[in-house]
């Protein structure tokens, strides 16, 4: 099944990062499974350990299943100073999970990340592809409620 994604790209090593992105983005659990690695390895004619090497180097990839919505809260200095850890505390309570964990219903995974380049609106988080800025505890509650409602 991953083969279909692979063949959209020429079988060259430099397409590995793009292939990994697309496989992860289209997987409902936002991760790269062992099967996926095997298929990529066959397609690109690369050893699996090279793929794991790359996969584990970059912070956007995961080798374990995650939730439908990946929350990435920025903790870099400009967001930190605007209270990103208050937001983190709020998120932990709202979701009942810690950093790196997924809610039981599989709807959310909570992660911390480095600067997202939207610091003009610190504190900031991304949920999947969407950016949420100028966060306050109330605003976070709202956002989470809305997404929960959709799932």
């Amino acid at each position: 099944m991953y083969k279909e994604i692979c063949v959209k790209y020429a079988p060259n090593k430099d397409n590995l990062i793009h292939i990994l992105h697309e496989i992860q983005d289209t997987h409902p659990q936002h991760y790269i499974s062992a099967d996926a690695v095997k298929e990529i390895s066959e397609y690109l004619k690369l050893p699996e350990n090279h793929i794991y090497g790359v996969l584990t180097f970059y912070s956007m990839y995961s080798t374990t299943p995650r939730g439908k919505n990946i929350i990435r809260l920025c903790e870099s200095p400009p967001c930190y100073i605007k209270g990103s850890y208050n937001i983190l505390r709020k998120l932990k309570t709202l979701l009942g999970v810690g950093v790196g964990e997924t809610t039981k219903d599989g709807v959310f995974t909570l992660e911390l990340c480095a600067c997202l380049g939207v610091c003009g609106n610190a504190p900031v988080m991304m949920i999947n592809d969407d950016v949420y800025g100028d966060l306050s505890e109330e605003k976070v509650e709202d956002i989470i409620e809305k997404i929960r409602g959709r799932n």
């Binding site: 060259n12 090593k13 430099d14 397409n15 590995l16 990062i17 990994l20 992105h21 790359v54 180097f57 970059y58 912070s59 956007m60 990839y61 990340c113 480095a114």
Partner: peptide
Amino acid sequence: AGAYVCGEETAMIESLEG
């Protein structure tokens, strides 16, 4: 794919090569 060091030019080249 989320690595600050890839802003360094030679790391970027490694990353471009996959």
